[in-house]
Each structure stands twice: as structure tokens, then as C-alpha cells.
Nucleic acid binder design. Structure first.
Lengths: 228, 228
DNA sequence: ACCTGAACACCGTTCAAGT
DNA sequence: ACCTGAACACCGTTCAAGT
């Protein structure tokens, strides 16, 4: 585009085939995921996008799992942390951050799975952890409980996204509902009684209730006396 | 082996190649998983074990996901539900059941992933749900909270197993620990302060604390007023 | 109805060889 | 040092054809 000043002889228009770099690879992977979903972000497909062979990527990325982890951290940059610096009920602000985190994962089915497997350690992940710790600290939650508690909160949000992601499940979900509905009141009295309510409710109400359950539990459950 | 009485002409010794049935397929899949791990339970590998072609399996099983779900329900039969009928602290008994569930999943890395995706609906899954509902009911937990609560409890146990399963992570986990340890106290004061404790503690102490957090939260968090 | 071979459209990862 | 083609060892799923 800025070609006029380019210099003598103009060096070959083409796709330019920018030199490979780790960050270039990751950026292309993010693009590809936005366009076609994480399932398509394979070493081979990505290499094709970068106009090279799959083998070349292994210079910059250990394997597919590491690639997906890098993509995840990139996306984590989009989580809205502004509630952290605001004033007002800390529980409500914590809930907002977690909802933003969950919404991001729900936009990219499949990525949530990586998040559960990956023990991420990128810079955006660290920012998120720091923010959650700050909020729990503001709420007066003892440090030990806060430290283990953020793991619970993130795990819950992530697992919720994984479940929804797996939902090509119009069918599979119906099967589960039907199975519960068909159950005999003799053998499964409580299941028969509660039935539908087990699955009822919009996802966001369940997410919000779950977050409240965790905040309450984390705040009120000491870590000592861990021996049942 | 009981060949003497077998009948006239003895019908071809060989592997016998028992006719395909859904339950035979699932049983073989379970065997194969125990021997080689879930990753090896593929349509092609399983077909090979059954001395047929992969295409033949599609008469009995919709796809790989359904196959894995069937294997999961089979394994769910091994969860120890005896604490349900005993007497004594309901919370302790609930914890025992969940620990048994988690231990089973930890034995078979990869299966936990299916559990999170699968919305299972097999008979052993229904028994488990019924048992958990019974215990929460015994504890006087309101029905609405109990119904949504079991989802939280199972999701937590399952997600914990998924995380540990992903742990070929001697390396990946170290990377995460190091990342937190290297963090600047300027930009991430709480992370720098808490540091190691985030990752500390044996898995079972964390599991047990998590279960307690959830039980406490579920018991004390009403479902109405779900609007933050 | 059930079973099959063959095909289609893919994978991750390694490695010897080149530049 | 970086990059590549080719190879190895696999996948899930469909479908026409057979029994």
C-alpha cells in the first residue's frame, strides 16, 4: 500500500509472505479461529494460511496444545476488567468480570476446553487473576480462601462454557431431559418429583446463581480443618 | 474352552467373532479403554478389535461422542453409592460419593472430558443424580437449590478430573508456577504476595475444600432474587 | 437388515535434506 | 538457524455394493 516510497525496483508485490514469527503465527491463528472456529486451527490448516508447510511452525510452537493456549491468552485480553476499578458492591463487580469472561468463551466454542486443560500462564491470564484477587480482598475474604477460591470461580465459568460449547446438543440435551422425564417414581422418587427443574432456567440465571453460590461458599468456608 | 460338549463337528474354534451388538461393542470399548486409554478408543481401532470394519459400527452407534458417552455410563456403575444408605453426617457422606466419582474419572483421563460435554443420560448417571438429591434433601436443602446444586457439584468434580487429566503437565504446570513467581510486585501486587499458595496443596485437600464450599454455598444461597 | 471395502477429506509430528 | 517436502502413522464418516 505505501508503495511509492518503497525504494528502487519495488520488491515483489504478492502476498509478501511475511517472515514467520511466533506472534505472527498466533495472530493468524486468532484470525483463523474467528473466521472458522477453533476446530479448524490445526497446524496444517494454519500453515496453509501462512503459505508454508506445517513442519515450519514447529520452530515457533511446541505443539497444537501450546498454540491453542496462546490463542486463548490473546482472547483473554478482551475480558472487561473495568468493573475492578469502579466503586460499589464488590460481589456485583466480581460477577460482572466473570460474566465477561464466560461470554468471551461462549463466543468461541472449543476454546473453553483448552482453558480447562491448559493451566494458562500468559500475561492476560495473570491480569485476570490479579483482578479477581483484588476484588475478593476488597470483600474481606481471607487470603487462603481467596487464592483457592479464584480457581473455583474460573473453573466454574470455564466449565459452564465448555458445556454450552458442546451443545450441538439440541438432540443430546433433549435425550437427557427425556431420560429424566421417563424415569420411574418407584426407583427414582426425587428425580421423578423434581424432573424438569433440574434443567430449567436460562443459562445466565444459572451462571449468576452459581457465582453467588461460590462467592458465599468461598467467603464462609475456612481452609483449616480440611480433614473432614 | 468348554469345547468337549460343544456339539457335532465343533463350529470353528477361532476368535468366534461374536455377532455385533451395541452392548458388545460398548463392552469391548470399555476393555480397550482400560488397556490403552480413551484416546485409543477410536472407531477404527475398536472395529479392528472386533474384527470388522469401522463402517459396521455405525449401525449401532451414532458417532464417536455417543460411543464415549456409553463408555462413561458404564464406568459410572463403579461409583460407590453405599454412603447414601448409611447414617451419620450427610455432608460427609455426600463428600464420599463425590470423591468416589472423582477418583473414577481420574483413573481414566480423557473420560472426564466426555462427561463435561456429554450431558449424560444413562442409567448409572440417573442413579447418581438420584443419590445426590437424596442426600441434599436429607440435609434440608430446599429443592430448587438442590436441583441446580447437583449440577454444580458434578461439574466441579468433573472439571477437577479434566484438569488433572490434562496433566502430562509436569512442564505446563511448572510454566504456570514460574509465570506467577516471576510476576512484578508493581503491576501484580497480590499475585506477587500470594504467589505459590495459589497452586499449593495436595489435590485431595483442594477437592475436599471445594466440595465444602459448594455445599455451604448451595445451602445458603436462595434462588429467588436472582437479579443481582 | 446388516455388513463391507474403498474412498474422501482430513489430522500431528518427525526427519533428512536443503538454504 | 530456519525452512521444506515427504513420510509415518493415524483419524471420522459416508456410500455403493454385496449378502
Amino acid at each position: 500500500m505505501t508503495d511509492e516510497k518503497a525504494g528502487p525496483r519495488s520488491r515483489r508485490e504478492r502476498p509478501a509472505k511475511a517472515a514467520l514469527t511466533r506472534s505472527g503465527i498466533v495472530a493468524t491463528a486468532v484470525e483463523l479461529m474467528r473466521a472458522e472456529g477453533l476446530a479448524r486451527v490445526t497446524m496444517r490448516r494454519l500453515a496453509q494460511e501462512l503459505d508454508t508447510g506445517a513442519a515450519s511452525l514447529y520452530v515457533y510452537v511446541r505443539n497444537t496444545a501450546e498454540l491453542h493456549a496462546a490463542v486463548l491468552d490473546e482472547l483473554l485480553g478482551a475480558v472487561d476488567l473495568t468493573p475492578v476499578k469502579e466503586t460499589g458492591d464488590w460481589q456485583a463487580r466480581l460477577t460482572q468480570v466473570l460474566q465477561s469472561y464466560t461470554a468471551m468463551l461462549l463466543d468461541y466454542p472449543g476454546l473453553a476446553q483448552s482453558a480447562l486443560l491448559a493451566r494458562p500462564s500468559g500475561k492476560n491470564y495473570l491480569r485476570l487473576i490479579e483482578s479477581l484477587l483484588a476484588l475478593l480482598s476488597e470483600g474481606g475474604v481471607p487470603k487462603g480462601q481467596a487464592g483457592w477460591g479464584i480457581d473455583l470461580l474460573l473453573q466454574f465459568a470455564t466449565a459452564t462454557a465448555v458445556e454450552h460449547a458442546g451443545s450441538e446438543s439440541a438432540g443430546e440435551w433433549q435425550a437427557a431431559v427425556d431420560a429424566v422425564r421417563t424415569v420411574s417414581a418407584e426407583t427414582h422418587p426425587r428425580l421423578a418429583e423434581q424432573g424438569d427443574d433440574l434443567f430449567a432456567g436460562p443459562g445466565d440465571a444459572r451462571l449468576e446463581w452459581g457465582i453467588r453460590v461460590l462467592i458465599n461458599g468461598i467467603s464462609s468456608t475456612p481452609r483449616e480443618g480440611t480433614s473432614l
